[in-house]
């Protein structure tokens, strides 16, 4: 396994490791080589690195053409430049024909975009893709999970979107932990007062919140949901069946992502209170931790929200 830290290097490490044995793996770059930390990949596999310039729609369309000829192209760049600027190409020329193109969207969320400001922070990507059929959506929680998510994506025949961040994510998982195909992994199991379901790089804050709550004698379970809108949600539903209070936490707009997904599962299977923590507005520039606190993702605020929700 090539060494890496954080989601971006994890992406580059995973495609580099796969390309050693699979000529089908390619990286399509809309001038995102450095941002995706893939310069070593380009040096080792110059033919498999396709630079198309600052042209995201073109990158996705080129990838569609490559996939139609049997390649496994990975398009990696800022989450919104793909899911917004190239949304139509992702829908009409990849998702509709079910072509085997993989997408890695970096700077996803406030935490992912932090100091760049709103133009480079993307908290709508999951909502956009949730309304497009045929997409498999992975939301790994750290670098190690991103590495395995990228490898898993290559095994799936069809479009996959993987949410990635700034590259400075806190490690939660061990490097060897596989990307859980069940769609949820329990990371804290203190009790069933509330089930907190999180996705993405906000997980460390949620784990801290669970410990704060434990000190207040409120015993929660924390689950990391790593597949959005999965086909088989049995494991998530089983967890949801153990409690009457659910809180979702996601670094994404409150609509269209994890909170929407879990609310839907609750409504359609076993109605239960679901409180969603997420973004209701655009963000702004700032140091990651300051931003995260200001916009309501601090462990204290998550804990407070859980407590208030228990009183309802």
């Amino acid at each position: 396994m090539t060494k890496f830290h954080g989601t971006r290097e994890a992406f580059a490490a995973a495609i580099t490791d796969m390309a050693k044995t699979d000529r089908k793996i390619m990286f399509i770059s809309p001038d995102s080589l450095k941002a995706m930390r893939a310069t070593d990949f380009a040096e080792e596999f110059p033919e498999a690195y396709i630079e198309v310039g600052i042209a995201e729609q073109n990158a996705v369309a080129v990838a569609a053409g490559l996939a139609s000829c049997g390649q496994i192209p990975f398009v990696g760049t800022y989450a919104g430049f793909m899911t917004m600027r190239a949304c139509e190409q992702m829908r009409t020329f990849v998702a509709y024909p079910k072509l085997n193109v993989k997408f890695i969207g970096i700077n996803a969320g406030l935490n992912g975009g932090e100091r760049e400001g709103v133009t480079h922070q993307f908290y709508e990507d999951l909502g956009i893709l949730s309304s497009i059929p045929n997409f498999t959506i992975f939301t790994p929680a750290d670098g190690a999970q991103t590495y395995h998510a990228v490898k898993r994506a290559a095994e799936i025949d069809g479009p996959v979107y993987i949410r990635a961040g700034s590259g400075r994510e806190i490690d939660i998982y061990n490097k060897e932990d596989p990307f859980n195909p069940d769609g949820v992994t329990v990371l804290k199991d203190y009790g069933t007062d509330t089930l907190i379901l999180a996705s993405g790089f906000i997980l460390n804050k949620v784990l801290e919140a669970a410990d704060l709550l434990y000190k207040e004698n409120i015993k929660v379970t924390v689950g990391d949901v790593n597949i959005l809108n999965g086909e088989n949600n049995t494991k998530i539903l089983n967890l949801m069946a153990m409690t009457n209070k659910i809180v979702t936490v996601e670094d994404h707009n409150i609509n269209g992502g994890l909170g929407s997904f879990i609310s839907k599962l609750a409504c359609e299977n076993r109605p239960v209170n679901v409180k969603r923590i997420g973004l209701n507005s655009f963000g702004e520039s700032g140091p990651a931790n300051d931003l995260i606190d200001y916009y309501g993702f601090s462990p204290e605020n998550i804990a407070k929200t859980v407590i208030e929700n228990l009183k309802l």
Partner: peptide, 19 residues
Amino acid sequence: MTSGSLGNGLSIACGMAIA
């Protein structure tokens, strides 16, 4: 290749030609 949304065919063809 699926087509009809204008402008996309050339880039897709580039992908096929690169392949």
